[in-house]
Simulated scan of single mutants.
Amino acid sequence: MALHKEETTGIPKGIAFILPDINQSIFRQAVTTALYKDLDNYGWTSLVLTMPSLPELKQAWVNESEKPARK
């Protein structure tokens, strides 16, 4: 899941990718919330991406290590 917010100044500066800490929801951290709410007023397009939980990451690493080597 991702949240997208376009810049509102008419003079775009770029895209800001905002990533919360692992095992944290998008708006659980005050800094993540503040950046997402305010960056559009400074010319930045914001994308807040969700991070997978730690168990999901561990399972992905296990699945990747179990794949046979490619020739």
Rank of each mutant, 00 (worst) to 15 (best):
T32L: 05
L35P: 05
E7Q: 15
S46K: 01
Y36F: 15
E56S: 08
I15D: 12
Q59K: 10
W61V: 13
E7N: 05
I22K: 02
M51N: 01
I18R: 00
M1T: 09
S65R: 14
K67G: 04
S53G: 06
F17I: 03
R70A: 15
N23Y: 00
A34K: 14
Y36Q: 02
I22T: 09
N41T: 13
A34Q: 11
M1G: 08
G14V: 09
G10M: 07
P55F: 13
K37T: 09
T50S: 15
Q24Y: 01
S53L: 04
L39H: 06
T50K: 06
L3H: 12
I15R: 06
K71F: 06
P55H: 08
A2G: 00
A2T: 05
P20Y: 04
I15A: 02
E66K: 13
L54T: 14
K13G: 02
S25I: 04
V31N: 13
S65K: 13
V62D: 06
V31M: 12
Y42E: 13
L54P: 00
W61A: 11
I15E: 12
Q59C: 12
T45V: 15
M1R: 05
K37D: 15
D38F: 03
L57F: 04
T32Y: 00
S53A: 08
K71A: 14
S53Q: 11
E7P: 00
G10H: 12
R28K: 12
K5L: 07
G43R: 07
R70C: 08
A2W: 09
V31F: 02
L54I: 07
T50L: 09
W61G: 06
Q29W: 01
K67S: 01
G43Y: 03
N63A: 05
L35R: 14
M51T: 00
S25R: 13
V62R: 12
V31Y: 03
T50I: 10
F27D: 05
D21G: 09
T33S: 10
R28P: 01
L19N: 02
N23A: 10
L47Q: 05
D40I: 12
L57R: 04
H4A: 05
N41H: 15
I18Y: 01
I26H: 04
G43P: 06
R70F: 09
V48M: 15
E7C: 02
A16I: 03
I11F: 13
P68W: 04
D40F: 13
Y42F: 15
T8N: 11
E6Y: 10
M1A: 08
K58G: 12
L47R: 08
T45M: 14
W44Q: 03
L54H: 09
Q59N: 10
N23E: 13
H4Q: 10
K67Q: 13
A60C: 07
M51C: 01
Y36R: 02
E56I: 05
I11S: 13
